[in-house]
C-alpha cells in the first residue's frame, strides 16, 4: 500500500530521536568533558594527567585487565561445555536451560552479595572448612592482605553470574547447526571431540564472536561485584570512575576514566571482529 514509503521512517523516528538524544549526544559530551578543564576553557589534558597521576590508576588498569583476561576465556570454555551439555540432554532440556540461565536475571550487585555470604568471615566457606576441621576458626578471607583471594572471589562470582550470557547465545547458535552434519561426521568415523572441534566450533564462529564481544565489553565494566566483595581494596576502572564522579564530585576526571573505558571497549570489539571475521564466507 502507498504508505509503505514513509511509514517505516515514521515508526523508527521515536527510537532514533531518543537514541540520538540519550546515546549519541551524551557520548560526545563525555569526550568534551574529559578534555575541558574545570571552569571552562580550551582543550586540555589536565583531567587525564590527574587520572594517570593518581596512585589508584595503575592498579585499576592492571586489575581490570587481569580480571577480564582471566574471566572471559574461562567463561567461554565453561559456556561451550554447558552449551554442549544442554544440546546433549534429551529430556527436560528446557528446565536445565532455565536453571543455568537464572544468573542472567541477577544484578551484579546481588551476585556480589551472594558470594559475600559464602566468603565472608562468618560465611559458608568458613563454616564448611571449619566443620571439616581444615581450619581452627573463622578466617578473614576477604582482606586486602590476601589480594589473590580477593581476585579469586571476584572471578568466581563473575563466572557464576555472567556465564549464562554467553551460554544463551551459544545454545542458540548450536541449535542452528543441522544435525545432519554431525551424523555425516559420525558415519565417517569422527569421535565426539573431533566433531566438536571440526564442526561445532567453526560453525559457531558468528555466535562466538557475538558472545565474546558482548562479554568482553561487560567485563571491562565490572563494578558492583568488586564493590560488594572487596570494597575499596580492589581497584577497577569503573569503580574509580564512580569514585571520582560521586565521592570527589569531579566530573572531568570521571569523564577521562569513562573515555578510557570506552576506548578499551571499542578497541577490543574491533580486535575481536577482526580476529573472528568470516574468512570463508561460510554461514551455518
Amino acid at each position: 500500500m502507498r504508505e509503505t514509503r514513509w511509514l517505516p521512517y515514521a515508526l523508527l523516528l521515536p527510537a532514533t530521536a531518543f537514541l540520538l538524544a540519550f546515546f549519541l549526544l551524551p557520548f560526545i559530551e563525555v569526550a568534551l568533558n574529559a578534555f575541558t578543564p574545570k571552569g571552562g576553557g580550551p582543550f586540555s589534558l589536565n583531567h587525564f594527567r590527574t587520572m594517570i597521576g593518581d596512585w589508584k590508576f595503575g592498579p585499576a588498569v592492571r586489575n581490570t585487565f587481569v580480571l577480564t583476561l582471566i574471566i572471559v576465556p574461562l567463561q567461554t570454555i565453561l559456556a561451550l561445555a554447558l552449551a554442549n551439555l544442554v544440546m546433549k540432554v534429551q529430556r527436560r532440556a528446557d528446565v536445565l536451560l532455565y536453571i543455568l540461565t537464572i544468573p542472567l536475571g541477577i544484578s551484579d550487585l546481588a551476585a556480589g552479595l551472594i558470594w559475600l555470604a559464602i566468603f565472608e568471615q562468618t560465611g559458608y566457606l568458613n563454616s564448611i572448612l571449619s566443620g571439616l576441621g581444615v581450619i581452627p576458626g573463622p578466617q578473614t578471607i576477604l582482606s586486602y592482605q590476601n589480594m589473590w583471594v580477593l581476585f579469586a572471589a571476584v572471578i568466581l562470582a563473575e563466572v557464576w553470574r555472567a556465564t549464562a550470557i554467553m551460554l544463551v547465545i551459544l545454545v542458540a547458535g548450536m541449535g542452528l547447526i543441522p544435525r545432519e552434519y554431525y551424523e555425516a561426521a559420525e558415519v565417517f568415523g569422527a569421535s565426539a571431540w573431533k566433531r566438536f572441534l571440526r564442526i561445532t566450533l567453526p560453525l559457531l564462529k558468528p555466535s562466538l564472536q557475538t558472545a565474546l564481544i558482548l562479554r568482553t565489553i561487560l567485563a571491562f565494566e565490572v563494578f558492583a561485584i568488586v564493590a560488594a566483595l572487596a570494597g575499596t581494596n580492589l581497584q577497577v576502572l569503573m569503580g574509580e570512575t564512580y569514585a571520582w564522579q560521586f565521592d570527589f564530585q569531579d566530573n572531568g576526571v570521571a569523564s577521562a576514566y569513562a573515555l578510557l573505558i570506552l576506548a578499551i571497549s571499542v578497541g577490543f570489539t574491533v580486535l575481536l571482529l577482526w580476529a573472528l571475521r568470516d574468512r570463508t564466507g561460510v554461514r551455518a
Partner: peptide, 29 residues
C-alpha cells in the same frame, strides 16, 4: 527501505559501548 542496514548497525553498535557511563554527562544536563 534505504537506511535499514545503517539503522540496524547503529542499534547493534550501541551494545559495544559501556552504556552506564552515559550517566556521567547526563548529570549536568
Amino acid at each position: 527501505f534505504p537506511g535499514k542496514s545503517a539503522f540496524r548497525l547503529v542499534v547493534l553498535m550501541t551494545r559495544a559501548f559501556p552504556l552506564p557511563l552515559l550517566a556521567l554527562p547526563l548529570t549536568v544536563l
